[in-house]
């Protein structure tokens, strides 16, 4: 099953393969993302989600296959795609305020993305906590701070690596609402997740991967097509 669009994709991967020695991480992965959509990239641990995001960002060169952003090879336009890393990759004890973290998004004198620093903090609801240290924030607030930094970067194509991991359900819902608002205002978001629960319905589209693409389409359709393969009760956001 594939998801058909008529519009030219913002980001497109064609026959991407990633292999480390004998270990195949991604096999013939092809997908395309349309502007202003919120897409979930779902799969178990080790299914290749993070690897795929790094390939789509142009940070990891695939063994074979290619990635294009607005029709250009990703190697020539990496700055057009923002990758928001997993929470575990950040040193939350680093002495830095929310405002200064968000400000790092405009590194190298790049032009602001959709908004400047203050507007980005406002947009994610952290303006009142701008002077707080990162380790004084809750998990959900930390994710929103990272998202605000992504908004300052000069790109509307956002790849989010498990932003819902290890945060409580209300924070997750808040984050999903925020991502929906961003998609509605023209951002394109690809969000990796373990979540097979109701949260999937918040997305326009779901791509299920396990080395290769197993299913691709609207949430309800993907659930139907994979019925029997997975037990939704065993999977949670995180």
């Amino acid at each position: 099953m594939t998801f058909q669009f008529l519009e030219e994709p913002v980001l497109r991967a064609r026959d991407v393969n990633v292999q480390y020695g004998d270990s195949v991480v991604l096999e013939n992965v092809s997908l395309s993302l349309q502007s202003g959509t919120l897409t979930a990239l779902v799969g178990a641990n080790g299914a290749g989600k993070s690897t795929l995001l790094h390939v789509l960002k142009g940070q990891l060169r695939p063994s074979s296959g290619s990635v294009y952003c607005d029709g250009d090879p990703i190697e020539t336009c990496r700055e057009r795609v923002v990758l928001m890393p997993q929470r575990s990759r950040i040193d939350w004890s680093f002495p830095i305020s929310v405002r200064d973290l968000v400000d790092l998004g405009s590194m190298n004198g790049q032009a602001f993305g959709c908004c400047d620093r203050e507007a980005a903090m406002q947009r994610v609801g952290l303006a009142d906590l701008a002077n707080r240290r990162l380790d004084e924030l809750s998990g959900g607030q930390q994710q929103r701070a990272l998202l605000a930094r992504s908004l300052v970067q000069p790109s509307r194509m956002l790849l989010l690596d498990e932003p819902c991991a290890a945060i409580d359900p209300p924070s997750r819902d808040q984050l999903l609402l925020l991502m929906r608002q961003l998609a509605d205002t023209g951002h394109t978001l690809l969000v990796s997740s373990h979540d097979w629960g109701e949260a999937l319905d918040s997305y326009d589209r779901v791509i299920v991967v396990d080395r290769s693409v197993l299913a691709d389409g609207p949430p309800a359709e993907v659930r139907r097509s994979l019925k029997g393969l997975v037990n939704p009760g065993n999977h949670h956001c995180g």
Binding site: R78, P85, R89, D91, L104, L134, R149
Partner: peptide, 11 residues
């Protein structure tokens, strides 16, 4: 310091 992966990603 705060995000080595992000720093590499930002070029």
């Amino acid at each position: 310091g705060v995000d080595p992966e992000g720093a590499a990603s930002a070029g």
